[in-house]
Computed example of a mutant assay.
Amino acid sequence: METQLPEDFCCPISHEIMSDPVILCSGYTFDRSSIQRWLDTGHRTCPITQTPLPPRPSLIPNYALRSLISHFAQAHHISLSPTLPATISASATTAAGTLQSYPSSQRQKVKQLVSTLASPESPTSSKLDALSLLRRPSKYDVNFRQILTDSGGASAILLCASDPQLQDSALSVLFNLSLDDDNKVGLVAEGALGPVVAALSSGFPAARALSATIITSLAIVEVNKGTIGRYPGAVESLVELLRDGNLKGKREAATALSTLCSFPDNKRRAVDAGAVPILLALAAAEESMERPVEVLSLLSRCAEGREAIRNCRGGVQVLSRILKDGRPQSRREHALAALSSICSHSESFAAAAKREGVYESCLEFIGDENGKVKRNASILIQALERCRDGS
């Protein structure tokens, strides 16, 4: 009887099982040889979405999917291409040689640990021991992380992350895997957001903070920002942590939101989740925290964010006070960016800011060496000079 291939294992172009899956910047995975032929013939759109691609689109190895396909192929005696395509870079070839230099005994040990994590019969104590043994080397050794990923470690660790007794240890190893750009998209594609968002929402304080850190790590890759933002409960859970978490949790949530909100749609999601009043309260109360002011400056770039800040009682006073007296300097620059955006769209807000003494404070930024800061100061000064009520 012919083996039924999982649909995700087949290349959307060739419809054959992938031997070297790579992720295009559109977020879709293809076999490297197929998508490379597509690009070599002059196409500059995604074959699936038809969205434009950059002149030299990057192809990110999907190690997690490659590991799943490899295990499936071995179990069903399916032959995959034994050699890497010629298009793989020299650095990848060098990395493969480095991995081969690892003793076979160590490779086998990693496989045994992954097997322990993946087995429903393994007791919790054994899984905790396995995660402990994986934690330190996966933190410091990029080659060890690739061996762990190639051994199917990602899927096994994600299973453990859903168990409250294993959650903290599993999330620590998962964060280590997310340190490599090659793993970031693959982890999201393999379902990492499910257990991460669950821990972010209802885990213990340490797990919630670590989950926010993982989201920050995954969102560094541009293609993941939209995927994370669309995931049910992701942005909402970050805002909840920002509101009721401990100090570390609030810091990590603010950092995650600052990373996510560089993606336009995520600004609206954060506003809809009620982030603005919480951010303003944190910006006023926690003078050492820069991120809340940074997120406010990002949200001020969309109409929904500007409206939410305008409608929040005390918003103009908080931003004006940070602009005048805030430390470090970066907090003042973020406040300047937010005020310049809001005041240029609202005469009443500009008048209120002028009454708070913002005009005098922003004059010192006109000569700033940073062109962006200088431009924001100029925009704010013009908006303040246009407003009628400056008394």
Rank of each mutant, 00 (worst) to 15 (best):
C11G: 12
R327G: 00
I215N: 11
L238G: 04
V235G: 04
A199P: 12
T51W: 02
F175M: 12
R32T: 05
D272S: 08
L166I: 09
C160L: 10
G367M: 02
E287I: 07
L260E: 03
S217N: 15
P57E: 10
H71P: 00
L80Q: 08
A154R: 07
L384S: 14
G27A: 05
A198T: 02
Q108E: 13
A189C: 06
I322R: 06
Y102T: 00
I60P: 00
L296T: 08
L363Y: 09
E385W: 04
E294H: 15
P123N: 08
A284R: 15
S262C: 13
L39W: 05
E294T: 12
D168L: 15
R321S: 14
S258M: 13
L171D: 02
I17A: 04
A130N: 07
F175H: 12
S391Y: 13
Q36F: 10
S258C: 14
E347D: 10
C343K: 05
I228D: 08
K250V: 03
A154L: 05
E16C: 07
T83E: 11
T93R: 15
A353N: 12
G245P: 03
H345A: 14
L131I: 02
S258P: 03
N266I: 08
L179Y: 05
I60V: 15
A96W: 00
Q50G: 02
S297Y: 12
G274I: 01
S14A: 05
S34D: 02
K372S: 12
P21R: 07
T124I: 09
Y28Q: 04
S217C: 13
W38V: 11
I147W: 15
C11I: 10
Y140W: 08
S320W: 13
D20R: 08
A207Y: 10
A90R: 06
